[in-house]
Design a protein around this nucleic acid. Structure first.
Lengths: 221, 221
DNA sequence: GTGTGTGAACTTGTTCACAGCG
DNA sequence: CGCTGTGAACAAGTTCACACAC
């Protein structure tokens, strides 16, 4: 369910502010969704609420974590240590619960060997030996567009089964590899679309943008 | 329609590769959506295809641009010139067609005055005078989470009506202001969700994550 | 009384299948 | 003959409304 991470973010902030219990109405208001929707969503995971009282925040976070597969550790490799890669390597998002940056990759000799947040930048050729130590779950591509496909192939060869692509390039990956795009230009386009039309913000769906598993068929011969 | 920017990205790559015409089947394959869906989507904008032949790529790009509100210039202000802000300021995404970075904002005296990609970093206090020159359409928040809300308020006060928030914080904005989140930790959570369940990538929807216009009601008193 | 959990009505979005144009 | 455009069938997701647990 695509709204779970949104709830999670809100619940975490509630936790930080010391709130221990929350109603579907409140959660819905913060997530900008209907209260009934919140209840439906949460009831799919089980009956976690207390009638008349609401949901226990800490317990809920834990349950959602389990649903999101956050009850295990995910190792992340960042490929392309430019401005963006550096930003991500140091960012809170990756330092977050259950995600560890396990490797940084770049081809530039001037960058290789640099230490960012305790991790050494290494050459793509080292990928096999890196994987020998720790298997890598998620690859983050922050390279220039022209080399994004090549980097994706390398990561997939190294056994990475999920790719998060920040490069403005449509990538082709083998079946079974999960591919997701975060694209600045697309984000801006969506904003201009809604703003240009003075729209009511469109559907409240927020998360989905998953693209793959399964083949992007090659063009015609 | 949330899939338009996806089509746009693919069409641009087709243009670059010299393809002048494309079928709904091909476009659908690249965008990972059903061919019928592509036709439905495009037919909502008008009848642009040629039966038996397909769509003219260049013409289609132009039509979609118009739908996305990209027939005018959008000015972007980036608030928070850390690693991420710098990356975005220099990034291709913002250099793209119809988006111009018009201002960079930070409070750090060590950063103010620095020139990035031809734009001077200025203090938030200068916002009014900046707006006097060029009105700002879209605000991009790349500050640390704790100050994100304050920055959002400042931008809104300066007349910015659309916010793209990279800070891991739920923001509250007045009605009528469009708010959109790009959140690393959420992106990762979605990946882990799908990978943990070996899911088929879920719904092919990709873009929507629009959050606002309309009030985030304040909590109970 | 308050707020969850859930069947049932409704709305939205997707897919099918095919008529008709180039 | 290939491929678009589109009504009609279908599926998914959303909202309503209310019984019931606390």
């Amino acid at each position: 369910m695509a709204r779970l991470p949104v709830y999670q973010r809100i619940l975490e902030e509630l936790l930080r502010s010391g709130t221990s219990t929350v109603s579907s109405e409140l959660l819905g208001a913060a997530a900008q969704v209907n209260a009934a929707k919140v209840r439906k969503d949460l009831s799919l995971l089980g009956s976690f609420g207390t009638r008349g009282a609401g949901y226990d925040v800490a317990f809920l976070v834990e349950q959602i974590d389990r649903q999101l597969g956050l009850d295990r550790e995910w190792t992340v490799v960042i490929a392309g240590i430019g401005n963006l890669g550096r930003a991500l390597a140091r960012s809170q998002g990756f330092a977050a619960r259950n995600f560890t940056v396990a490797a940084l990759i770049d081809t530039d000799p001037a960058i290789i060997g640099e230490r960012i947040d305790g991790i050494d930048v290494r050459h793509p050729d080292d990928l096999p030996s890196i994987v020998a130590d720790t298997s890598l779950s998620i690859g983050v591509i922050t390279t220039p567009a022209p080399v994004a496909q090549r980097v994706a192939d390398l990561l997939v060869d190294a056994g990475v089964r999920s790719l998060l692509n920040f490069a403005p390039r449509v990538l082709d990956v083998p079946p079974g590899v999960l591919l997701r795009y975060v694209d600045l230009s697309m984000e801006l386009q969506v904003m201009s679309f809604y703003q240009a039309r003075q729209l009511d913000a469109g559907p409240d769906a927020r998360m989905p943008r998953i693209r793959s598993i399964g083949r992007t068929p090659a063009g015609p011969s």
